[in-house]
């Protein structure tokens, strides 16, 4: 472990003070094993208390700290600085309104999640014990349930940038997760919702979401399966 000097360029925006976002450079010394979050903490605690960012679990499960570092969407807490060298450029996620500094407005993101009815819909009464679901049936949705709603995928999606109405990869993945759950009876309702100009058809299999996903979920593949399901359903 050794201290190194790094240069950190951060896109700052303080509402009420700044008219528009601007870059600020901090030259600081940190341990070479630091993560991006360690760097932000160091700046916030030792240099400039006004810096704002979201963070909580620091173990890549809460999804608070997704941001853009040197052009890539990452979770700050799990990303070591050595991935980028000694020059860091940190900005908020694209495609969302900036509230302050690295904090963006995720309300529209969560509102889209709500639209696809993200809960098990049952036509049948639940059994006394658990539903029987084979490991193979679980396997269909297993990976999709790892999504931590960090919004890195939606922020990386070129289809989302020009069209704020597009449901986006995270909500669509959630739709997949329920439609392909062997216990669920709500597929028809959800298919009607995603089978829309602003639904699954705006996905052009660009794969940016897969690249951005910190949980390495193969989102594009699941959205493709979702498209096939929608077509099967409407034929």
């Amino acid at each position: 472990m050794a201290m190194i000097d790094i240069s950190v360029k951060i896109l700052r925006y303080q509402p009420g003070k700044d008219e528009k976002p601007h870059w600020q450079v901090f030259n600081i010394a940190v341990e070479d094993e630091s993560t991006i979050l360690d760097v932000l903490n160091e700046i916030h605690w030792q240099h400039d208390g006004t810096l704002a960012y979201r963070r909580s679990c620091r173990s890549s499960i809460c999804g608070s700290c997704a941001m853009k570092v040197n052009g890539r969407n990452v979770l700050a807490c799990e990303t070591p600085i050595h991935r980028f060298g000694r020059k860091l450029k940190i900005e908020p996620l694209s495609g969302f309104d900036i509230i302050k500094d690295l904090v963006v407005d995720l309300d529209p993101f969560f509102a889209k999640l709500k639209r696809i009815r993200p809960y098990l819909i049952l036509d049948k009464p639940a059994p006394d014990k658990e539903f029987v679901q084979s490991p193979e049936q679980l396997e269909q949705i297993g990976e999709s349930t790892l999504c931590i709603l960090c919004a890195a995928c939606s922020a990386a999606c070129p289809s989302s940038w020009p069209n704020s109405e597009y449901l986006g990869p995270a909500a669509l993945l959630k739709a997949y997760r329920f439609i392909f759950d062997s216990r669920d009876d709500g597929a028809d309702q959800r298919i009607e919702i995603v089978n829309d100009k602003n639904g699954v058809w705006r996905c052009h299999t660009i794969f940016n979401c897969v690249e951005a996903c910190p949980k390495k979920i193969k989102i594009t593949e699941y959205l493709s399966r979702l498209k096939v399901k929608v077509v099967e359903n409407s034929l």
Partner: peptide, 18 residues
């Protein structure tokens, strides 16, 4: 409740298939 979200009638599933 989700009806309002479907502002455009044609979904896009047929063009995708074709």
């Amino acid at each position: 409740m989700n009806k309002d979200f479907k502002q455009t009638s044609r979904s896009g599933s047929l063009p995708w298939l074709l």
